[in-house]
Amino acid sequence: MRIGLFIPCYVDQFYPKAAIATLQLLEKLGLDVDFPLRQTCCGQPMANSGFEHLTGGCNELFVDNFAAFDYIVCPSGSCTLHIKQHLHSHKNEAAATAIRGKVYELVEFLTDIIKVKHLEASFPHKVGLHQSCHGQRGLHLSQMTELVAAPYSKPMQLLNMVKGINMVPLKRADECCGFGGTFCVTEEAVSVKMGKDRVEDHVVAGAEYITAADLSCLMHMEGILRRQNSPVKVIHIAQILNAAL
């Protein structure tokens, strides 16, 4: 099983530790992981802004980089969802279709494909789990509070394997943080207010860390926490799952 590691552009540039943790975690599980160096971005920032017609270049590049792998794994629910829903290719639509079916967000890859039952990880801290919308409502990583359906949570399933971790309960289990791509600047007032409210929920619950399967949400919340000089930190779920004993 050959796995292509898909690291979103902003993670590559700003959060290399999350990418390293993702790689190390997959390697620890004995998987054969390769990182195609010519990758850039999934094209979502343009598409969500109404410019999906400009994403052809990103799409062709993505297909070139990842067509050969058995699975493509990405530590971002949002970028994964974008590829699943919108990747097409003029040159090789068959390859694009295949990729849409074999791209996985890290958490769901671990729970559904690898079926991880045990992790050698320890993180003795109080942690709040932020449900990123695209991972949750798009990829169904967790049950959604709007639906009348049995609860489950793939991120919690993994976090519960981590020694010493203390997950704090939130008042609003799956409210959006307000990042929203270009929304964060075009609708600055609402975006910031949503972020402040989301952060507050974690702070009141006593979290030392806010974690998520999406760094875009975490980057937004980190921006607010740092401006508030808050001691609360953000951390990608891969870094917790990879935290050494």
């Binding site: 590559d12 700003f14 290399p16 600047v185 600055e188 910031v192 921006g223 607010i224 740092r226």
Partner: peptide
Amino acid sequence: PWYNQRDMPEAPAQSFAEW
């Protein structure tokens, strides 16, 4: 507008690709 009420993450020494 990002900076009105938010900070940016600190730029790391190297990108993941460089690492």
